[in-house]
């Protein structure tokens, strides 16, 4: 399960933005939205006749496999870095 997401953005005007997002507190804060999203997934699974348990399990596996992901892009004087720990 991801613990921390780090986002760093370097803008062309040399301004830098650094954001650290602790995942668990963020999920707790947005829990009503998370519940709605899960309900939406369940409805979509029922409409398209996809196994609900299998879909949720796959989603959980994808989320749990995210730690270690790193995306780093630099172009001209702009740079974006996303690290999931």
């Amino acid at each position: 399960m991801p613990q921390l997401v780090t986002v760093r953005v370097k803008r062309p005007d040399r301004r830098r933005i650094r954001v650290w997002v602790p995942v668990l507190p963020a999920v707790l804060v947005f829990s009503p939205v998370v519940v709605l999203a899960v309900l939406g997934v369940v409805v979509a699974c029922l409409v398209y006749r996809v196994g609900v348990a299998r879909a949720l399990n796959t989603g959980r596996r994808v989320v749990c496999a995210l730690p270690g992901t790193r995306f780093d892009m630099e172009y001209s004087r702009t740079a974006v870095l996303v690290i999931i720990r």
Binding site: Y48, R49, V50, G51, R54, A55, T58, R61, V62, C64, A65, L66, P67, G68, T69, R70, F71, D72, M73, E74, Y75, S76
Partner: peptide, 25 residues
């Protein structure tokens, strides 16, 4: 202008991702 892209994705994520193929209606 020079650009650089550097992506590191855990293979575990790919393994989990391929399970999504089973969810295609």
């Amino acid at each position: 202008e020079a650009g650089r892209l550097n992506v590191r994705a855990p293979l575990q994520l790919l393994r989990a991702g391929v399970q999504l193929a089973a969810l295609i209606p």
